[in-house]
Design a protein around this nucleic acid. Structure first.
Lengths: 352, 352
DNA sequence: CTGAAAGCGCTTACAG
DNA sequence: CTGAAAGCGCTTACAG
């Protein structure tokens, strides 16, 4: 493990200056600071606890923290599992709270005694991931994708499986296929929408613009989605939903409205934990193992910081399509719910 | 913050000996070691990261780690939230992996740079909680209760609310009320069973022993519970379930069997996150806010280690009973499902 | 098994 | 803004 002396020699400064950079003390010129920080990341300086080194890997929310979603809970569970197979412990960091404006991310992480970080990002904070990777600090983004090869990531790829799901619906006779996705423009939802669109195009179906909804990814929004689609004057006979909580909300709402799944409308949901079995009927869904995502992310970062694994990680985990009870052949005529709650079979309408 | 010198003076040894104890080095007599460890906990020694002190609070699983259950995910979420309001970070510890047989828990925690711990326990590991508290290290158990006043804890108290739930069922006409609980003998399930039993006794109802099931707390076991109760020759007309996943599994299974809730059987579930809205109908349930449990636990430990809060914490958080769609008046005659899947109304049978 | 003392890694007044 | 040097907290051979 390098000491301040090693860093000093390499950066051609005194150990005092290295210490000042480590502590983000005032009175270091910008270029010296930059040079020292680069050497720190190149040699892999590690903050000592007493005379030992820390064995901490950070899980950093670039925005507000949440473990409440099944996705985040599962990622967390996978990370905790992986941590048991290594010498490293997982510490939760919140960059919004902790980052001082004058310090670099490397300085923040060293101050926390963290040797590597797993980054949980949102569209709003992709820039943060770029900066951290740019500083050269060992890091990996979980659940998103970057074109810049210097940014490490692990994510599930659900474009082809969503294509497959939509194609399955077409195969059993559906042509009026709606889609609902989170209103967040992340790569996951973009991929899934693309899979949906490609499948329709591939089979000569033009997606009706009324049949696409982007909403916040909460259960209640899923209920709204079902409500709006089924009360539409041109109701779909099948719905693809690209988010777990939206999917659950949609199923629950169908029950409430007296809309039968799959007799009146088919539903393909998305599940990254095991929510598909919490609803009735068990949900046909594009599935991803978010637990594994967290597990692999942790092992990858542990490998980076211990030097036993690659320093570059660009991985796509497989997703899959499971057929259960929420999909079936379309009704003879599309079913629609009137404002008074009555369920009626419409005349078959053109598919757009 | 005390240094090794302060500890040495107080324990009447040299700083070398203090250091040996901190590092669990061989060659320290048992009594000296003990004396030094006590002073360490009394003065509150803190491992430094470099020349700074750590600001870590540990969340320690005394057994295998899991964040996958809605309960643990919610606790975690609450802790992460609370952490943002303090200077402390949350680190996940696994005592099974980390504890060396020769070291004390205090030594383990100092080695990890942890200043206080929140303990997640099971019946099998209550002894671990006692030992940690016995050493005097700042700690608090979340989700369980201890009679020994030296052990800090925060838990929800769901005995009275379960009593209230059972009484509600009796109030709307039920006398054939079954109960299913986790097979884990923790204080939560013991309390809830007691609440159920007291309510029945209070209204002169003798609980039929066939109407009590203890099973593992997984969704599939909840399905089994529903199955067994509804195929019993003496079926209940209402079921109280004391665990969230069991509750969800039971509702799903009722759908599968064609048993109508609440027309054929009423169900009072338990929910510590927001699962009650994931099923249809929305579940009448005894509710607890596990998020708040984690939130308060973290703030309490942060208060202990920063000296701004009490060193002794014995708190019960309130739980409450919410009436939704899974409860209603009992059927005219109890409904039973025959082996062939047929649903039949039985002759009214004696309540035991 | 224990302490006095040398030493290590880092930080911080002090000097320029 | 930077370095030489004193100093701090801790650890570790060494001596008994």
């Amino acid at each position: 493990m390098p000491t301040v002396r090693d860093i000093a020699r390499d950066a051609e400064v005194s150990i005092a200056t290295v210490s000042r950079v480590l502590n983000n003390s005032a009175g270091v010129s910008a270029d010296v600071r930059e040079r020292v920080l680069q050497v720190i990341n190149r040699l892999g300086y590690v903050a000592p606890v007493g005379r030992r080194h820390t064995h901490l890997i950070g899980f950093a929310f670039t925005g507000p923290a949440t473990f409440f979603s099944p996705y985040d809970a599962a990622i967390q569970d996978g990370m905790a599992d992986a941590s048991q197979e290594t010498d490293y412990d997982l510490v939760l960091l919140n960059l919004q709270r902790d980052k001082r404006s004058s310090e670099s991310y490397t300085q923040l992480f060293l101050r926390k005694g963290v040797r590597g970080v797993i980054l949980r990002t949102t569209t709003a904070t992709r820039e943060t991931c770029r900066r951290i990777a740019g500083e050269g600090f060992p890091s990996l983004v979980v659940g998103d994708r970057f074109d810049d090869p210097s940014i490490n990531f692990i994510k599930g790829d659900s474009r082809d499986t969503t294509f497959q799901a939509a194609e399955h619906l077409i195969g059993i006779g559906h042509s009026r296929i709606a889609v609902a996705a989170s209103d967040v423009e992340d790569s996951d939802h973009t991929d899934r929408l693309e899979g949906y669109r490609k499948a329709l195009a591939h089979h000569g179906l033009q997606p009706n613009p009324r049949w696409t909804q982007r909403v916040p990814a909460q259960r209640l929004d899923g209920s709204q989605v079902m409500s709006r689609f089924m009360t539409d004057p041109q109701p779909p006979t099948a719905i693809v939903i690209t988010d777990p909580l939206l999917s659950v909300g949609a199923v629950v709402q169908a029950h409430r409205m007296g809309v039968r799944i799959p007799e009146d409308v088919s539903l393909v949901g998305f599940d990254d934990s095991d929510l598909r079995g919490n609803v009735y009927p068990t949900m046909t869904a594009v599935c991803q193992d978010a637990r594994q995502l967290g597990y692999e992310a942790f092992l990858a970062v542990a490998g980076m910081v211990s030097g036993t694994g690659p320093r570059t990680v660009h991985r796509h985990l497989r997703t899959w399509f499971e057929i259960h009870g929420t999909t079936g052949p379309p009704p003879v005529a599309p079913v629609r719910v009137l404002p008074n709650g009555e369920r009626v079979a419409e005349q078959a309408l053109p598919t757009r």
